[in-house]
Design a protein around this nucleic acid. Sequence first.
DNA 1: GTTGGTGCAAAATCTTTGCATCTGG
DNA 2: CCAGATGCAAAGATTTTGCACCAAC
Lengths: 146, 146
Amino acid sequence: MDKLNDSYLKECLQNSGCKITGPRKAVLQILEKYPDNHLSIDEIYEAVKKSYPKMGLATVYRTLALLENIGIVCKLDLDDGFSRYELYNPNETHRHHHLICSSCGSVSEVEEDLLDTLEKQILQKNKFLVKDHRVKFYGICEKCRA
Amino acid sequence: MDKLNDSYLKECLQNSGCKITGPRKAVLQILEKYPDNHLSIDEIYEAVKKSYPKMGLATVYRTLALLENIGIVCKLDLDDGFSRYELYNPNETHRHHHLICSSCGSVSEVEEDLLDTLEKQILQKNKFLVKDHRVKFYGICEKCRA
DNA sequence: GTTGGTGCAAAATCTTTGCATCTGG
DNA sequence: CCAGATGCAAAGATTTTGCACCAAC
């Protein structure tokens, strides 16, 4: 798993003419370690410092911007004023959706996409060719409904 | 139109025990004047100052937060680092979708909702009761595709 | 007259940038 | 070795807050 992603990271970075560095590996490692946690920049920074103590916050910003550019991670906005990131799942062609509970604040995910019909309609009616989307659903989660 | 919204604002504010003030009317007036412009805080501030010169920026922030709380306006995130607001359409039960062109940056709207099926599936599979959503589509607009 | 609202300036946050130093290839 | 990457601190940008004054009701 680690090896696999190391080589995936290596490939992506080298294709973009970038170096494979300690900070970059460390950031990716944290994102792999907490796949469903929607970590904020600061949370990533704090977590990385444990394995890579000399990490600087600016480098976290620069690294995540880079990883986003080359399509390894995706920025997330959960309306709390923090930039959050999660790994792209290489099997996804479109971004998955997030379910945000208005009661407890928990965030879960919908793997299914199911917007193809809507996107086709948008192409026909609005002549707009959809390439990707970001979808957030607000509501009440299972626990809070009980 | 102006009268009508004045009384709508009045009703909403009074129901929340808030006063009807010059700044609040001025902000709403600007949002009504530019219904499709997705104005940023600063754009609203600059526009309001023309009709209400002593307007302070902090009041724009406070007013929009208030109007959002009582359901008159809706915050928008167009990924450019600015908070933007638009009026809620009282006829909409759910938020409409935004089409963001990756080429020219233009933002247009899809009035249709069309997520009912998906939201029913989410209720069944995830036991999550959807109350509202935010949907952004990224792609290429009609002009840029030509 | 009270209570809440406003303007201003200062403070707090998050993010970006400049630059000397370090490091991967 | 050299171009690119990093760490640190300073600067930028947006948003929030404290407080004296003002205005709805």
